[in-house]
Design a protein around this nucleic acid. Structure first.
Length: 423
RNA sequence: GGUGGAGUCGCCUAGUGGCCGAGGGCGCACGCCUCGAAAGCGUGUGAGGUGGCAACACCUCCGUGGGUUCAAAUCCCACCUCCACCGCCA
C-alpha cells in the first residue's frame, strides 16, 4: 500500500509512476476520490457516535419518568448509528480496494517500459570454450547429479532429483551462502514454507502473481514462492525499536511455484522448476536508508556470485517489469554457455514502506524521542540453488564433461577440486 | 484428533452490562532530593483515525469476526492462538 499523505499532496508523482509501469493513472484519481469519501463517512460516524454516547450516559443516570422518552430517543439514534456505520464500512472497503489496486511508486531513475527495457549496469566478458559445450542437464546426468526423468515419473514435469554430487552441491552452496551471510551480520533463519493468507497478501503475492501460488484449500495455507514471505511477515503487526535497525535475516526455505503460463519456456533441465531451495536476504531498515541498503544487498549478491567465479551481468529492471511491491529491482544474471544468453540467478528489490504498511510493521525512534513511523523492507536472493547449479556446471565445464569447482566452494565439498563424470 | 483452562494499554494484573470511554504494580522518561547514585517523593507514559495553523476536541481498538442491547472488556455464537492432560506420531 502506498502512503496516502504524500499522495494527497503530490498525486502527479503517483500518476507518473503508474504511466511508467504501463498502468492506469486513473486509478490514482479513483483512490483520491475514495479517500475523500471515506473521510466524509468517518466524520458523520464520529459525530453521531459521540452524540449516542452522550445520550447513553444520560439514560444511565436518568430517574423514573425521565427515562422513558430518553430511551425512545436513544433507540432512534442507535438505528441511525447502525446505518452510518454500514456506510462507513462500505467506504472503508472501497478505499482499501482502491488502495490495493495501486502498486508501489517507483524510485527516481527507474526506466519506464517493460521486460525488455532494462538498463545494463555491468556486464562481464562472455567466456569462450574451445570445445562443444554441454548444457547443464547433460553435464548433470554425466555427473549423476540431476535426474529429471524420475522427477517427472514421481511428481510430474518440472520436478527433479538431485542425487550424489548434485545433492552435495546443494548443501555446499547453501552452507557457503549462509556462511557469507552470517559473516556480514545476518541472522540465519529457517522459515516456514507454508503460510497463512495474511502473509501472502501482505507481501503482495496474491495480486497479479496469484496464479503462481500453490494453495492448500483444505487448510487455507499457501506454499511460499520465496522465503521473502515468511521473513517479511516475521515482524508483522510489530513496532520495531529504531535502535535495532537495520534488522537483517538470511532465510533458508524451499520455494514453490506453479509456473502457470510458462508452458514451453525453459522446459529442459532444472532452470524453471516447481520446487527449489533458496537462501534469501531480507532487511528491515529506516526509509531514509533503503536506497543505500538496496546497494548493499546487491553488493552481497555480487560477492556470492564472484565467489562462484561466474561471469555476470547486472541489470536495472524497467518500471513495467517490477512486482507490485518493488520501487526498484536489480537482477544479477549469469552467462549460460549452452544457450548463449544471460540467466537470472538473483534479484533484489527495494519495497520501501509498501510491504511494511500492508503488514503493519512500524518503527519507533526511541533515541530521538520520535514517534512511530513506517519501516522499509528489502529483499535479495543470496543463492537460488537450482539455478546456481545450472550456471556452475555450465560455466565451469571442461571438454571431458568434468566440472571445475571454484576455490570458495571447495571447502564445502570436502576439498574436491573437480567433479568427474561417472563411468 | 479429544477434554479442560486462558487470551485486557511493553511486562504482570484488576475488572460479569452504564462515572472502566480501562484501575493498580513493574518497567521506562522527566523533575525534586543527593557531592554522585540508590531509595523515596512527584509528574508523565499505547496505537490508529477525523477536524483544527495550533493548543486541543472527538471517534475507533480489551485475541478475531458476528450477534443481543438505548448502552458490551463484561452477555451469546463461531473462529484463531496459547497452556495442561489424553490419544497418535516424525
Amino acid at each position: 500500500m502506498i502512503d496516502l499523505r504524500p499522495l494527497r499532496d503530490e498525486p502527479d508523482r503517483v500518476r507518473q509512476s503508474q504511466r511508467a509501469r504501463g498502468e492506469d493513472p486513473g486509478l490514482v484519481d479513483a483512490l483520491l476520490a475514495a479517500d475523500v469519501a471515506r473521510r466524509g463517512a468517518v466524520r458523520r460516524f464520529d459525530d453521531l457516535r459521540a452524540e449516542q454516547r452522550r445520550i447513553g450516559r444520560d439514560v444511565a443516570t436518568a430517574q423514573g419518568p425521565l427515562k422513558g422518552p430518553l430511551l425512545v430517543q436513544a433507540k432512534e439514534l442507535a438505528a441511525e448509528v447502525r446505518e452510518v456505520e454500514a456506510t462507513l464500512a462500505d467506504a472503508d472497503a472501497a478505499l482499501r480496494a482502491a488502495h490495493l489496486a495501486i502498486p508501489n511508486v517507483i524510485e527516481d531513475g527507474v526506466r519506464p517500459g517493460g521486460e525488455d527495457d532494462y538498463v545494463v549496469l555491468e556486464e562481464a566478458a562472455v567466456p569462450t570454450y574451445d570445445f562443444e559445450v554441454r548444457d547443464h542437464l547433460a553435464l548433470g546426468e554425466l555427473l549423476g547429479a540431476i535426474d529429471v526423468q524420475r522427477g517427472a515419473k514421481v511428481s510430474g514435469a518440472r520436478f527433479y532429483y538431485l542425487t550424489g554430487i548434485g545433492a552435495l552441491l546443494e548443501f555446499a552452496l547453501v552452507n557457503l551462502a549462509v556462511a557469507q551471510a552470517v559473516a556480514a551480520g545476518f541472522t540465519p533463519v529457517i522459515a516456514p514454507a507454508l503460510v497463512k493468507a495474511a502473509a501472502m497478501e501482505g507481501t503482495g503475492f496474491l495480486g497479479a502473481h496469484a496464479a503462481e501460488v500453490y494453495r492448500l484449500a483444505e487448510d487455507e495455507l499457501y506454499l511460499v514462492g520465496t522465503s521473502e514471505v515468511p521473513l517479511a511477515a516475521y515482524h508483522a503487526e510489530e513496532i520495531l525499536d529504531g535502535g535495532t535497525l537495520p534488522l537483517r535475516y538470511a532465510g533458508f526455505s524451499s520455494c514453490f511455484r506453479r509456473e502457470a503460463g510458462s508452458y514451453g519456456k525453459d522446459t529442459r533441465g532444472i532452470i524453471r522448476v516447481h520446487q527449489f531451495d533458496k537462501v534469501e536476504m531480507f532487511s528491515f531498515c529506516r526509509p531514509a536508508d533503503a536506497t543505500a541498503e538496496h546497494q548493499r544487498l546487491l553488493g552481497w549478491e555480487r560477492d556470492f556470485l564472484a565467489a562462484l567465479e561466474l561471469p555476470i551481468r547486472v541489470i536495472d529492471i524497467a518500471a513495467g517489469d517490477l512486482g507490485s511491491s518493488a520501487a526498484r529491482k536489480y537482477d544479477c544474471e549469469a552467462w549460460l554457455p549452452s544457450q548463449q544468453r544471460w540467466l537470472e540467478l538473483t534479484s533484489t528489490s527495494n519495497c520501501t514502506t509498501f510491504q511494511a504498511r500492508r503488514l503493519g510493521i512500524r518503527l519507533r525512534e526511541r533515541d530521538t524521542g520520535g514517534g512511530v513511523g513506517p519501516v522499509a523492507t528489502l529483499n535479495g536472493t543470496l543463492c537460488a540453488v537450482t539455478r546456481s547449479i545450472v550456471a556452475l556446471l555450465e560455466v565451469h565445464q571442461r571438454a571431458d564433461g568434468s566440472v571445475a569447482v571454484p576455490a570458495a566452494l571447495q571447502p564445502y565439498l570436502g576439498g574436491r577440486e573437480v567433479l568427474e563424470p561417472r563411468r
